[in-house]
């Protein structure tokens, strides 16, 4: 009986972790290519969440179906943001970039506050209380759909980087900035594309996130930090690492919430981070810098 409870919670944690992983994947792509730490990551996710909530409440459009359009909107947002605002900061010192993104985060969070007010918004799908029975495990339908969609989205992104010409160009650009310039790649455009792809990840993740948690204008920083923890745990610069880190952190949080108290669950995620830094500083799937 108790074992079943653990198993159910663990499965739910892994599924939530996949969505976390997709969100963190966005951060990883942006950092890996543009070398800018996106401190407005959580705020970008809350934009996507509000779009999903709005679409659902006005047109009854399911967040899972809206995932791709929302990702597309965030893609455009990310592209413009990088090309118009962030690009001049690429060569500036870290603290300067940090401040730029903090300013953006403040603007985003408070614009959302003006538009939607401080109250939590949520999406009530018809399948919100459905579940699947799989042997002894009871799987929450929303989380199962969200997890599956996160995997699909991540696979599409991997395929893009592996097989498409643009994806290869972006990887070249991440490996060697000067080299990319020399062979005539339009680095600024590739940077904007990468930021846009990162934003699309966070857009898709945000859309699915509405099935799992409520959204308020102030949730941004918590998810930004969560994304950092996941990316470092998984291995900075490793795309698969972001997903693995997401699963690990999702699982840890879920079990910690069950064993202790849900409000203290992120402490355990930080605990994992510290352990990783102590014993495997390059992250689970990261390569040790030479």
């Amino acid at each position: 009986m108790t074992f079943d409870v653990y198993l159910n919670v663990a499965v739910a944690g892994v599924l939530t972790g996949l969505v976390y992983g997709l969100m963190a994947l966005g951060l990883s792509v942006i950092f890996g290519v543009v070398r800018v730490v996106n401190f407005a990551h959580g705020e970008m996710m809350s934009i996507a969440m509000y779009i999903a909530v709005l679409l659902f409440s006005t047109f009854h459009l399911d967040p899972l179906i809206m995932l791709v359009p929302i990702a597309a909107v965030m893609f455009a947002f990310g592209y413009v943001l990088q090309a118009r605002v962030i690009n001049p900061f690429v060569t500036r010192p870290e603290h300067s970039q940090f401040l730029l993104l903090v300013a953006l985060a403040i603007i985003i969070a408070n614009t959302l506050l003006i538009l939607f007010g401080p109250d939590a918004r949520t999406v009530q799908t018809s399948y919100a209380y459905d579940s699947f029975q799989l042997g002894p495990v009871l799987i929450d339908a929303s989380k199962a759909y969200a997890g599956a969609a996160a995997i699909a989205f991540a696979i599409a992104l991997f395929a893009f980087f592996r097989f498409s010409l643009v994806g290869k160009a972006i990887r070249a650009c991440a490996d060697n900035y000067t080299g990319a310039l020399v062979v005539g790649l339009n680095v600024n455009r590739l940077y904007a594309l990468s930021f846009a792809l990162g934003a699309a990840c966070v857009g898709a993740a945000g859309s699915m996130m509405t099935l799992i948690v409520d959204v308020t204008p102030s949730i941004g920083p918590v998810y930004t930090l969560l994304a950092f923890v996941i990316v470092i745990t998984g291995g900075l610069g490793s795309m698969a690492g972001a997903l693995v880190g997401g699963i690990l952190i999702g699982l840890t949080e879920a079990l910690a919430g069950l064993l202790f108290t849900p409000s203290a669950k992120s402490m355990f995620a930080f605990g994992i981070l510290v352990l990783v830094l102590l014993f495997r500083p390059q992250g689970i799937l990261g390569r040790r810098p030479s």
């Binding site: 903090v102 953006l104 403040i106 603007i107 408070n110 506050l113 003006i114």
Partner: peptide, 12 residues
């Protein structure tokens, strides 16, 4: 609520 912060962010 939030208007002041938005302006603050823009100033930053």
């Amino acid at each position: 609520p939030g208007a002041k912060e938005v302006f603050y962010g823009l100033c930053l």
